[in-house]
Amino acid sequence: MKANSLKTFFTLLTFSLIVILPWDPAIQAASHEHHDEHHDDHDDHHDEHDDHHDEHDDHHDEHSDHHDEHGSQKAHLHGYAEMTVAIEGNKLEINLDSPSANIVGFEHKASNDDQIKTVEAAESVLKTPNKMFLFNGTNCIVIRTSVDISAVLEEHHDEHDDHHDEHSDHHGEGEDVGHKNGEEIHSDIEANYKFSCDDGSKLISISMILFNHFPAIEKLKTDWIKGNKQGSLELSSDSRTVIFR
């Protein structure tokens, strides 16, 4: 009996691994070609503008082929977004990366007034961390917000200034490994937040109230680090709290 139960346990264990591994969304995440964190040079932005127009016509194929130059394709799953949360000491950093469709409902440049309004509304939510996150256990104040919504918007508004900050900052904290390509057109929206908390160790959980504003995000894969602890979970509008334990 006992040998059997053990054997069954491990057989099932192995079996389920074999069955489930190929579907692991993390595999897609692995090939996930992130748009990197705006530390590209400014000029690149302008170069990109020119490109936009070419791309504009065939943005249907966009998902599949505009990343070729990097040799790896970005997994692009509508309804699915990724978030990372890192806490060290009193510093907290949150990064959200989502296909534009989840945020604004389309993936091309906003072409009419309605679409521009939608993008601007989304941008104002993304730039207001209070509307995105609810911290439990301690108080956290936002130090820097940077939202890259350029994929769906022609103008860059005031973003240019942010970029300068970002630029210096990123070099300070170090993006070590070779990544120096110019910015490319993509259909993702990325937001990065830096907070300073009263007591980082007391931060027990974060509720993602962003589900209220972006119902199109059905699954939010959240990886987190808090000191020595690491974890991962899949949030949805039904379970929207990441608990650090």
Binding site: A86, K91, E173, G174, D176, H179, D223
Partner: peptide, 9 residues
């Protein structure tokens, strides 16, 4: 805190 950035790069 830089873990995710290094991971991404």
């Amino acid at each position: 805190i830089a873990t995710f950035r290094v991971q991404r790069s």
